[in-house]
Design a protein around this nucleic acid. Structure first.
Length: 566
RNA sequence: CGGGGCGUGGCGCAGCUUGGUAGCGCGUCUGAUUUGGGAUCAGAAGGUCGCAGGUUCAAUUCCUGUCGCCCCGACCA
């Protein structure tokens, strides 16, 4: 491809809409353009990268036994009603109505659809296992699309669904996918971690997220350097630190705290640290009011709470209701003397003489102690993990890093097949529900994640495996006929050798060409200048290295081949 | 959905407080001189100031509404 013909509008300035580095660089380098919030056009360079990523994914999915299909994006409401997700997925689904007034959704995911297909045509255990996948656009009406390709409303996804006869089969499929995912991210040179994840409200019993490590990640993960345990902070089990911090128990007393509404207020005014306070959150679990208490600086993990309570619906209580029931508004609540169920986080067993609201506006208790002053109905793990927590596997300290979730795999079991009554006959002639798994990769997000990990002040640095072109040939001056002709001949030779090459044949100054080449991140640059060309030499520069090397004109193609294949 | 910010040539922005129909840098086009890290000079094109109302002799500027975009939040009381 010649640069003079290639549509890649580069921008010198950072577009004001872009906040994070991948968004800025993909816009500046002319890879993507936004059309509306959370929906992007992939320009020629961007789409080349997308296709590279897709090819890697496709190869690994096929190698793992997957078969590629293409399902419709438009899905009828009835299908989603069968699993209850028409309402459960709710506002996050783009919905539309046809001329006959029938409701449809734009597919945010395809469990229902694929299950209905398989149910129709798979009747025997002999047809299983079956692994079907597709790569297409997904639609999710996100509350807040953001960060360019990171969280879009329309995005490219690979989704594979496995169907097995039993849990053992599912385990095999799951392991295959886990391995395939590792290969995929390794081939793209991404620094990533596979972490234990929560499967959420509609998951099965096991789930892993594949996290690309990056500052701008939206997810937090904890990991153990000792035993390699890694988990999403929402999933990680929190144990109690076995600390020798027993204190002498002091007398309970009530203090006047006018206008003190937040934990922070108490810290500021009374110099009582977060770790000496507890907070009380009021929830409605299936319409029953309950209180959750945890250390002042901890985050409640609603998924843990919901799982523990086995409740269908869990929402925060509103303040008016809480005032009526408890005699105080938010900010003055505490577990002492409360007459609703109280669930305490495990960590409270390690706290002494702490502070909490007195269930009376503008009053707090100090020197509260578990057991003496109140007895929770249950003491369970309810919080998100933090750095410094102990590894549930080996008890060593956990570290916290941020990551971008680029893949997520789930064991679904019979969740969907049961709801949709998708069954087969086993070897004994017994009817059984299909055992399913689902496995997703955010393709467009992966492109952004790669940029987040590979860039410098001058622009993107693509890994060879997903670079839009392997090489860019830069004649330093198009007016110099020997240089221009030399560049063209090298360009032709590279093309003939099957190398993806871009020739910057624009009549621009060298500086402009170098800046653009760096910005769009082509891994290798061959520069042809008048002086070295006279000596039959060209310059080879690797985008990720600072200096170039002089190479004999005759051996440049072989040299490039070697680098690409290494 | 709550809070904040923004919308002015392709891009980045100024002007608006104190109304008098627009300006800067980059980019684009023409010509000349340049040609190894985003050249220089000369000239030119390009804007119903997001949209709709209102106030006014007069609105980019003030008021109302509306649409769009970005950021923060939506458990941390």
């Amino acid at each position: 491809m010649k640069s003079s013909k290639l549509f890649y509008p580069t921008l010198r300035e950072v577009p004001s809409e872009a906040e994070i580095i991948s968004h800025q660089l993909l816009l500046r380098a002319g890879f993507i353009r936004r059309n509306t919030a959370g929906a992007y056009t992939y320009l020629p360079l961007g789409y080349r990268v997308i296709k590279k990523i897709i090819n890697i994914i496709r190869e690994e999915m096929d190698a793992a036994g997957g078969q590629e299909v293409m399902m419709p994006i438009i899905q009828p409401r009835e299908l989603w009603e069968k699993t209850g997700r028409w309402s459960l997925y709710g506002d996050e689904m783009f919905k539309l109505t046809d001329r006959h007034n029938r409701d449809f959704a734009l597919g945010p995911t395809h469990e229902e659809l694929v299950t209905s297909i398989v149910d129709n045509d798979v009747h025997s255990y002999r047809d299983l296992p079956l692994l079907l996948y597709q790569i297409q656009n997904k639609y999710r009406d996100e509350i807040r699309p953001r960060f360019g390709l990171m969280r879009g409303r329309e995005f490219i996804m690979k989704d594979l669904y496995s169907f097995d006869v039993d849990d053992e089969g599912l385990n095999t499929s799951y392991r295959k996918m886990y391995q395939a995912y590792r290969q995929i991210y390794e081939r793209m040179n991404l620094k990533f971690r596979a972490v234990e994840a929560d499967s959420g409200a509609i998951g099965g019993n096991e789930s892993h997220e594949f996290m690309v490590l990056a500052e701008n990640g939206e997810s937090e993960i904890v990991f153990c350097e000792n035993c390699n345990y890694a988990a999403n902070v929402e999933k990680a089990e929190c144990s109690v630190l076995e600390m020798d911090n027993k204190e002498e128990i002091k007398e309970l007393s009530k203090i006047h705290t006018p206008g003190q509404k937040t934990i922070q207020d108490i810290v500021d005014t009374f110099d009582i640290p977060y770790e000496k306070q507890i907070k009380t959150l009021m929830y409605l679990a299936d319409d029953k009011l309950c209180a959750v208490v945890l250390r002042g600086d901890r985050e409640l993990n609603e998924i843990k709470l919901k799982n523990f309570l086995a409740s269908n619906e869990l929402v925060m209580a509103d303040e008016r209701m809480v005032s009526e029931e408890c005699g105080a508004g938010f900010g003055s609540l505490g577990p002492v003397g409360l007459n609703v169920k109280v669930y305490a986080d495990l960590e409270l067993t390690n706290m002494y003489n702490f502070t909490c609201g007195a269930n009376e506006d503008d009053y707090h208790y100090i020197n509260v102690n578990l057991g003496r002053d109140f007895v929770p109905d249950e003491i369970v793990d309810l919080r998100n993990a933090v750095a410094g927590d102990l590894c549930p596997e080996c008890n060593k300290e956990l570290f916290l890093v941020k990551g971008i979730e680029v893949g997520h795999i789930f064991k679904l079991g019979n969740n969907y097949s049961q709801a949709m009554d998708a069954a087969f006959l086993d070897a004994e002639g017994q009817e059984k529900h299909l055992i399913m798994g689902c496995y997703g990769i955010g393709v467009s997000r992966t492109m952004a994640a790669s940029v987040e990990q590979n860039y410098d002040d001058n622009g993107i640095i693509w890994p060879m495996s997903i670079a839009p072109y392997h090489v860019i040939v830069v004649p330093v001056n198009m007016k110099n006929e020997e240089v221009a002709a030399g560049a063209l001949s090298i360009y032709n030779e590279l093309n003939e050798a099957g190398i993806e090459v871009l020739l910057d044949d624009r009549d621009e100054r060298a500086g402009v060409k170098f800046k653009d080449a760096d910005l769009i991140g082509i891994p290798l640059r061959v520069t042809i200048g008048p002086k070295s060309w006279k000596d039959n030499q060209v310059e080879l520069k690797k985008r990720w290295e600072k200096d170039f090397e002089l190479i004999d004109r005759k051996s440049i193609v072989e040299r490039i081949k070697t680098i690409i294949n290494s």
